[in-house]
């Protein structure tokens, strides 16, 4: 078991606190079978073919930053190479600040990976096409009405001259972290549309967390129906209840062979 990065500096009143879903992502990505897949895909120097460049890892919805920090701190073990780049996005500016500290603390000692930045944005809309090698998303997946985005500008930053945040502001920011609309899939569906455009066409791979209410079998089938060799498989599960997995991690990638 690799150590979990510290998030003790984060105030969880307005930033998602690491939970079972976060830990399932950590466990899945660092499990021997997944590490073997990633080593093979990103090994350096490669057995054959040209020298491969440092992989760029993007996490959308970083929250506290626990997942991205884990990847940054354990890059050598996960990818078989240390020269990995990490980049994060969150719609919540408080999460951006929190995650940036979490990642920087986690790589202070002993890691040779390179942390870029956390940007405040909507999904991967600001990412240069086809530049991402590893994509990670633990979305707002609970079937619950989406929050009213018209308040976003007011609530996304500390209010000048006032107490850091109000109760309504904090509730709104936490709603952003779990509420996923119909079937808990509204945000994830928008993200899935962007995935083929942001991933590197040959070595890109995405990890997506789904819960049982998201209808994961149908989601995976939809991805396979993209054609062009796109694949989707469950590579990690947790919370088995009466034969149902509560949470799962789906790996999305293209096999060109």
């Amino acid at each position: 078991m690799l150590p979990t990065p510290s998030t003790s500096h984060v105030c969880f009143d307005r930033v998602y606190e690491p939970a079972e879903d976060s830990f399932l992502l950590l466990d899945t990505i660092s499990a021997p079978s997944e590490a073997a897949f990633l080593h093979d895909r990103f090994e350096h120097p490669p057995h054959h073919g040209p020298c491969s460049t440092p992989p760029l890892v993007l996490e959308v919805g970083v929250g506290s930053g626990v997942v991205l920090a884990f990847v940054a701190a354990n890059a050598g073990k996960i990818f078989g190479r240390e020269d990995v780049l990490t980049l994060g996005v969150d719609i919540n500016s408080f999460a951006c600040d929190a995650a940036s500290k979490t990642v920087q603390n986690a790589i202070k000692t002993g890691s040779r990976s390179t942390f870029l930045d956390i940007v405040n944005g909507d999904l991967a809309s600001s990412i240069r096409p086809h530049s991402i090698d590893v994509f990670i998303f633990n979305p707002p997946y609970v079937p619950a009405e989406l929050p009213d985005f018209s308040r976003h500008n007011d609530y996304n930053a500390p209010r000048p001259g006032q107490k850091p945040t109000s109760f309504e502001q904090d509730s709104y920011l936490l709603e952003l972290s779990y509420a996923g609309g119909v079937d808990g899939m509204e945000v994830t569906n928008r993200m899935l549309e962007q995935i083929p455009d942001i991933l590197d066409p040959s070595r890109g791979v995405a990890y997506l967390l789904l819960c049982a209410q998201n209808k994961p079998e149908a989601v995976k089938q939809d991805i396979r129906n993209w054609g062009h060799g796109w694949k989707a498989e469950t590579v990690g599960t947790s919370g088995k209840q009466a034969g149902w997995e509560k949470l799962q991690i789906v790996r999305i990638w293209r096999s060109t062979a």
């Binding site: 996005v89 719609i91 500016s93 405040n120 909507d122 018209s150």
Partner: peptide, 8 residues
Amino acid sequence: VANFLLPA
């Protein structure tokens, strides 16, 4: 921190 959120 760069803000890439767009107005509606």
